[in-house]
Structure formats: C-alpha cells, structure tokens
Design a protein around this nucleic acid. Structure first.
Lengths: 346, 346
DNA sequence: AGCGGCAATGGAAGCGCTTTCCTGGTTTAA
DNA sequence: TTAAACCAGGAAAGCGCTTCCATTGCCGCT
C-alpha cells in the first residue's frame, strides 16, 4: 500500500469540477461563490478528507495566519475562558494562536525582537497588562496591530470588564441589608512581575458607591490579604472581633469568598443570615457552593478582542476603540436565607 | 518610509554573487559548499539581516521541520533539562519543537488524530511514558518515526537512564558505613494518568545490590510515601523510632532527601555523622545544601533521543536502538563528616 | 592529449496555496 | 434592443524556499 499522499487543492478542484481558485475561495469563505458550487466543493473536500496545508497558505498569503496572545500565565479559570473566547473567533477565519505566558518581564522584550514575531505573528493580543507597565507608556516596538484585553488602553483597541461597576453593583446590593458592611482588599502583586489593578478597582467602585449611598466604608472594616482562600478565613476572624453579627461581606474574589464561607461555617455562623458573602468572578464551582457572585463575560471579552484584532489585520485604520463589558450579579444562598434553596428542593 | 520588506533568499544570493541554490545549501549546512563561498554567503545574510522564512521551507521541503515532544508536564527541573537537550540538537538542523504536556490520557489519542499531526510533525519524542500504558502495548497509530526517552522500549528507539544501576551505586556506596541502612520508597502514581517506574527501579537496584553485599534491606527499613519533602520528614521520624543512630538513608529522590535533611537538623542529629543522606536526581540546589546525590545526564539523554529521531526522519530504517545512560554519584557533606567542608572553608 | 570523474555551483521546476486578471455569460438600465 | 455593469469562476503568476539536474572547470590517469 503506497503511503497515500495527502490530497491537495488540485484533487479537490478536479473532483468538484472547478478551478483551484474556486476551491481557495471556498476555503477562505469570503469571496463570492455560488452556493451550489460551494456545496459541491465542500462535498469534494469531505469525501477526500482534505485538509488545507497551513504552511502553504502562509507562504502564498504572505502572512502567518497566527496571532500571539501574551498573558501572565495560563493555568487559571479566567485565562482558560479568555483564550477560549479568542479561539472561537479566530478558528472561524482559520487563524492559529500562539500562547506566550509571560511569567517574567524581560521575556516580552526578547520575544518582540525574536524571529518568532517576524514570521509567526499577524497581530498581538495582550491580556491583563498595562501598557505603562510594559514599556513605560511608550507604544510597543512592533509594527503589528495590537489589542489589549482585560485592560483599558487609550493607545490601542481594548476590551475590558468594568470592575468599578462591579464594585458598585456589589455595594448597591449589600447596602440594604442590616448589619455592617465589610470588604476584603487584595494585594496587587499576584505574582512577581505581574501586578494588577483589577481588585483595587472593584474595591474603589464598592466604597465609592457605598459612600454615595450614605454608608461610607470605614477603614477598619477592610481587611487586606493575599489572594488565597486562607485570606478569607483570616478576614472573617478579624471581622468577628469587631462587631456582633450580622456581617455583609464583599470578598472581591470567589477564592477569598470561599475562605470566608468556610470559616463562617466553622464558626457556626449561619450563612445567608448572620453572614452574607458576595464573591466575584463567577467561578463554576460557585453555583454548587451557593455563593453569590459577580459573573463576568470573559469569553465574550476575549472574542471581542479577537474580532477587533482581525479587523486591524484586515486593514482597519480607525482610532483606538474600547469595548466595555459589564459583570452581572448572581444572587445565591450565600446572601439570602436558605428559603430559596428549600423551595427548589421542594 | 516604505514598510521595508523582509529580504529573501534571492537578495542574499545576489549580494553574495551566487545562485539561490547555493544559499539554500548554506542554510541547510549539509551540502558541499566551498568554505570561501560559504563565508561570502554568510556575510551577505548578516548584512541584510536575513532570516529564512520557515513556512516556505516547510512547503518546499514537504515536511514540517517540527518534532512533537510528548511529556507528562513541563514545570520541573527534569523536563526542562530534557527539553533543553532535545532543543540543542534540533536547533542545529533548524527544526522546531512542539510541546505536548499530556496531563490527561485521552489527550494523546485526540492529538494523534488531529490535523496538527498531519502538518506539524515529522516525528515524535515521547518522554517518561511506557508504551504498554499508552496503547496497551500496541504500536502507536502513527506513521511518523517515534523515539522514547526516559523509558526503555523494545519496539522503538529509546534513550534512558539506568535507574537500577543508580540504585546499585547507592547501595555500594552506603553499605560500608556503620549503622543500619534505610530507604524511602515512592508511590508510583505521581499524578493521575501518569504512573512511573523510575523510583521502583532505583529501589530495586538498591535492595538487590545490598542483598548481594550480604546486607539485605529489611522490609521495616523501607518507608513508603508520596513524592514531597514532607514525605522525607515522615520517613526520618519513623526511622528514629526503630533504632538508635547512625542511619544511612537512601532517599530515592532529592526532594525526599531534603525533607529527611531538614527533619534531621530539627531533631538535632548530626548530618554526615549520625545521619547520612543520599538523594537522587542531581538537582541544582543539592550542591548548596551539601546533599550527596546521583547526578543524571538528562540533557545528554534528550540530545541522544533527538539525534536518533533525526536519523529516522532522514530515512534510517534499522531495528530499535536503546541507548543507556549512567548516573554518577556525587559525594557531598550529607554523607561524610564535615571535615571536607571545613577544609574548603580553610 | 584525451578522458572519466568529481567537486562546486547555477538555475529551473515545483511544493500547495492565495490573489490577480480576465473571460464569458447574465443582468440591468436606457 | 443594445450598451453598460456585473458576477462567477478559470487560468496563471507568484509566495520563498528545497531539490534536482545540468554545467563548468579541474584533477589525475592512461
């Protein structure tokens, strides 16, 4: 049995009784091809098991059909979802993704100069980094289009979630409850070489809104800690030394909220009554845990970033665009008496 | 300023006053080119800042110039070094690496069927996996050449380190000391979906050699635990309940040895006298800690695997080859009185 | 001197695509 | 009815390389 060569565009064209140009047009699904012809070509491809050779495509097209995504690290729920959103859009245009978990600062500079950029990148998506932080506010040393995601930026297109708004929503939601209001503040340095202002903004929105509602958040009601469940435990222990129940706690992140939740249970406090806990991030496990949280449209944000980048790659030249996404508050049993749950259980 | 196109092979050829064929030959540094000509071409490339377009190369050459490396995970000293060794060899032939941290079993099957394999892989290097485990002993469902590394295999080429020998070396080294001999045994399941026999073989070598020396290792002197520094601590605590000092301990891995070491210090036992500890792996930090260990030629092993794979890719058809590497015992203060150190300190 | 052989090199063909150009047929407008 | 406009799709010209084949000059041998 001969090793059976991969079918090429020519075989497809022949089988479908069209020219190779038409096959190519079908592949790039943009040009005008009569639906009937398109179907015939599609059928031919399927029956041959045809897969276009990406390298040939890159040579002929003069571009890489690859975009680079620069992010702090990958192994988190947030970045996984973000990349999925990006992928969804890019796949449609048959673009590839090259992932660059930055981990350390110097890496970016080296990368931008490397030959990878020269042949592997039609555009960049940069996640969660501030331009100021990256290059002291100067434009990036690249001629490729750039889109920021999970960070607002005035020089480049950006897609971001309004964390300040999220904080306000949280404030407006918690304010009416009786009992004092507390918050957990997170250190900005998540990882060496990666500081982030996300948490600070959430808290800003929270305390400003609270002040606007006539219930300013006292310094003493804010507990500062690292990003870990343990931090939440410590926070709750601190709060109970200050006041008797009930407590209304804005945790700023689901992981922190989880710590608060666990500690509350350990302390024998009734969650939903004596302690109300509001997380942030909309992690998948929050549902099972009954944790109220702010859900973020992360995939959508990624998809939008990818869309904007594709437009830039295809030649769009307008000024910097910013697309804002809004978080949504999801109310669960951690902020309301378990009556709701009981009803569900029927 | 026009966007300055990338120089191509033609510009280089023109500048060097040679044909494009010659430039290509220089790039692939295998064909016969007169040294003088080669130098002229090199100079031309440098002055133009020429970088060959990898995609064009792949199309013209009809291969991907990429090999896939399949491994359990990457973020360890061992795999980092292994990949470095592979890279070193592959770079010379201007091959790329595609890394596939497997993490879960099903992933391999999906990957082997995906279109990535079709266009991104001239060959596979599989690290630390047993074929039996992967596909029930059946040959892999791929027509690409395959080389195993850090695992012996009879169907395919393989490069591996002789762990049994390492264990014997350890035994031969520890046997003459006075005091009983102990060992730590590691669970084989490091990670779900990834069992490994490395530790078992080290211990086999150790106990067989010991028996051969007339000092069999009693069951009770072997402590079984997980792969973590804590495991070492537990082991030592166990041993001191059995016998008075001195102890001669084969930890089986540096991380375990570290735990033993720390616990020994905490217990006030004199390391090098009352407790002798021998690690395994040759981690970089062992030197600073004065930990005796078995150093493994990991890069060399990776390089050899890459070399064998390249030969296969270039058409070599012989039977499965196995290249064995040997660990080396490095003696440091953890297994000998600190006299040596004192001397060094002078 | 004449020849085969070989080392070094130029250049054309071709890899599998994209893209441009152009044709022939069809529609629209006058 | 005719010209202008338009559309689908075929053919051909590349994209930047590798590879093969042909050519050249040079050597040693008879």
């Amino acid at each position: 049995m001969p090793p059976k060569r991969k079918p090429t565009i020519h075989e497809v064209a022949h089988l479908a009784r069209v020219g190779i140009g038409t096959v190519s047009r079908v592949l790039n699904n943009n040009a005008a091809v009569r639906p009937e012809t398109r179907a015939r070509v599609q059928a031919a491809m399927d029956s041959l098991g045809y897969r276009p050779n990406p390298h040939a495509r890159r040579v002929a097209g003069g571009r890489s059909y690859t975009v680079s995504v620069i992010l702090p690290f990958v192994a988190t729920e947030f970045y996984t979802r973000l990349v999925e959103g990006i992928e969804r859009v890019l796949d449609q245009e048959r673009y590839d993704i090259a992932l660059f978990p930055l981990l350390s600062r110097g890496r970016l500079e080296r990368y931008l100069e490397s030959s990878t950029l020269a042949y592997q990148t039609d555009g960049l998506i940069i996640a969660s980094y501030d331009l100021t932080e990256l290059f002291g506010g100067n434009p990036l040393p690249t001629d490729r289009p750039v889109v920021f995601v999970d960070a607002h930026n005035t020089h480049y297109d950006s897609a971001y979630i309004d964390n300040y708004l999220g904080g306000s929503l949280a404030a407006a939601y918690l304010a009416p409850f009786k009992g004092d209001i507390f918050a957990v503040k997170l250190e900005e340095e998540i990882d060496r070489a990666f500081t982030n202002t996300v948490f600070a903004e959430r808290l800003n929105g929270f305390s400003h809104k609270l002040a606007g509602l006539g219930r300013p958040l006292p310094e003493s009601h804010v507990f500062t800690t690292r990003f870990s469940a343990e931090g939440g435990q410590l926070a709750l222990r601190q709060f109970i030394t200050l006041k008797p129940p009930p407590y209304n706690i804005f945790a700023g992140a689901d992981l922190i909220a989880l710590g608060v939740l666990e500690e509350a249970e350990r302390q024998g406090l009734q969650v939903g009554h004596e302690v109300r806990i509001l997380g942030y991030d909309g992690q998948p496990w929050t549902e099972a845990r009954g944790l109220s949280t702010l859900v973020q449209p992360v995939e959508e944000m990624g998809a939008e970033a990818a869309r904007m980048l594709l437009e830039r790659i295809q030649g769009y030249r307008g000024g910097a665009r910013g697309v804002r996404f809004e978080p949504t508050l999801v109310e669960r049993s951690s902020t309301k008496p378990s009556r709701g749950t009981a009803t569900l259980a029927r």
